[in-house]
Measured scan of single mutants.
Amino acid sequence: KSIMKVYCQICRKGDNEELLLLCDGCDKGCHTYCHRPKITTIPDGDWFCPACIAKA
């Protein structure tokens, strides 16, 4: 079994998992407080990182 360690693409830390959003496009993580602008609430439904939005 392989366990994927998810970490924030900005701060490179994997702590505060409850505030770590996973992109529905690329599965990369980003803390709500590292994202600019900050994300104050966990979004309902799908969330896409800035890189995936730029590709769309």
Rank of each mutant, 00 (worst) to 15 (best):
K1A: 02
K1V: 01
K1C: 03
K1H: 02
K1M: 06
K1Y: 03
S2G: 14
S2I: 14
S2N: 02
S2W: 02
S2Q: 09
S2C: 05
S2P: 04
S2A: 09
I3F: 03
I3L: 05
I3N: 15
I3Y: 03
I3Q: 15
I3T: 10
M4F: 04
M4D: 13
M4R: 06
M4I: 09
M4C: 10
K5N: 11
K5E: 06
K5D: 06
K5L: 05
K5H: 04
K5M: 09
K5P: 05
K5R: 08
V6L: 09
V6N: 07
Y7W: 07
Y7G: 07
Y7F: 09
Y7R: 06
C8A: 00
C8Y: 00
C8H: 00
C8T: 00
C8L: 00
C8I: 00
Q9H: 10
Q9F: 08
Q9G: 11
Q9E: 12
Q9T: 10
I10P: 02
I10M: 11
I10L: 13
C11N: 00
C11Q: 00
C11A: 00
C11M: 00
C11K: 00
R12F: 04
R12D: 12
R12E: 13
R12M: 10
R12N: 08
R12W: 04
R12A: 13
R12C: 06
R12G: 10
K13D: 11
K13E: 11
K13T: 06
K13C: 03
K13Q: 07
K13M: 13
K13P: 02
K13S: 07
K13R: 05
K13G: 11
G14N: 03
G14T: 14
G14P: 11
G14M: 13
G14Y: 15
G14Q: 13
G14I: 04
D15Y: 02
D15S: 10
D15N: 12
N16E: 13
N16Y: 11
N16A: 07
N16C: 09
N16M: 06
N16P: 04
E17A: 15
E17M: 10
E17Y: 02
E17V: 14
E18C: 04
E18D: 10
E18M: 11
E18P: 05
E18V: 04
E18G: 11
E18W: 03
E18N: 09
E18K: 14
L19S: 11
L19F: 03
L19D: 06
L19M: 14
L19I: 07
L20Q: 03
L20H: 03
L20K: 06
L20N: 03
L20G: 02
L20R: 03
L20Y: 08
L21D: 02
L21A: 07
L21G: 04
L21Y: 02
L21V: 06
L21S: 05
L21Q: 06
L21N: 04
L21I: 09
L21H: 02
L21K: 12
L22T: 12
L22F: 13
L22E: 14
L22R: 15
L22C: 13
L22D: 04
L22G: 12
L22S: 13
C23R: 03
C23Y: 02
D24C: 15
D24P: 10
D24L: 11
D24A: 14
D24N: 15
D24M: 13
D24Y: 01
D24E: 15
D24T: 14
D24R: 10
G25C: 05
G25I: 02
G25A: 05
G25Q: 13
G25L: 03
G25D: 05
G25K: 11
C26E: 01
C26D: 01
C26Y: 01
C26Q: 01
C26F: 00
C26S: 01
C26A: 01
C26K: 01
C26H: 00
D27E: 15
D27L: 08
D27F: 02
D27I: 14
K28M: 13
K28I: 03
K28N: 11
K28R: 08
K28E: 14
G29E: 09
G29W: 06
G29I: 15
G29R: 09
G29F: 11
G29Y: 08
G29P: 03
G29H: 06
G29Q: 10
C30G: 12
C30D: 04
C30S: 12
C30F: 13
C30N: 04
C30Q: 13
C30T: 14
C30P: 02
H31P: 02
H31E: 01
H31Y: 01
H31D: 02
H31K: 02
T32Y: 12
T32K: 06
T32D: 04
T32G: 07
T32V: 10
T32I: 13
Y33G: 11
Y33W: 05
Y33L: 05
Y33N: 04
Y33R: 10
Y33I: 04
Y33D: 07
Y33C: 03
C34F: 01
C34Q: 01
C34L: 01
C34P: 01
C34V: 01
H35P: 08
H35A: 13
H35F: 07
H35R: 07
H35I: 12
R36C: 13
R36Y: 04
R36K: 05
R36D: 11
R36V: 14
R36W: 12
R36E: 14
R36N: 09
R36T: 15
P37G: 06
P37K: 09
P37S: 05
P37C: 03
K38T: 12
K38P: 07
K38L: 13
K38Q: 04
K38I: 09
K38H: 06
K38C: 07
I39N: 13
I39L: 14
I39Q: 10
I39S: 08
I39A: 09
I39K: 07
I39V: 11
I39P: 03
I39M: 14
I39Y: 06
I39D: 05
T40W: 09
T40D: 08
T40E: 11
T40N: 04
T40C: 15
T41H: 11
T41V: 10
T41W: 05
T41M: 07
T41R: 11
T41K: 15
T41D: 09
T41Y: 04
I42L: 12
I42G: 10
I42N: 04
I42C: 15
I42Y: 08
P43K: 09
P43Y: 03
P43G: 12
D44R: 09
D44H: 12
D44E: 04
D44T: 09
D44M: 09
G45W: 01
G45S: 12
G45A: 06
G45T: 15
G45V: 06
D46P: 14
D46W: 01
D46S: 12
D46L: 04
D46Q: 15
W47M: 03
W47P: 06
W47G: 03
W47L: 03
W47V: 03
W47F: 02
W47C: 03
F48A: 13
F48R: 13
F48C: 14
C49V: 00
C49P: 00
C49W: 00
C49G: 01
C49K: 00
C49N: 01
P50R: 15
P50Q: 00
P50V: 13
A51M: 13
A51R: 08
A51Q: 05
A51Y: 02
A51W: 05
A51V: 08
A51I: 06
C52W: 00
C52Y: 01
C52T: 02
C52Q: 02
C52A: 01
I53W: 05
I53D: 12
I53R: 08
I53L: 14
I53M: 13
I53Q: 11
I53K: 08
A54K: 11
A54G: 09
A54Q: 15
A54T: 11
A54F: 08
K55G: 14
K55E: 13
A56S: 03
A56N: 06
A56G: 02
A56H: 02
A56R: 15
A56V: 14
A56W: 03
A56E: 15
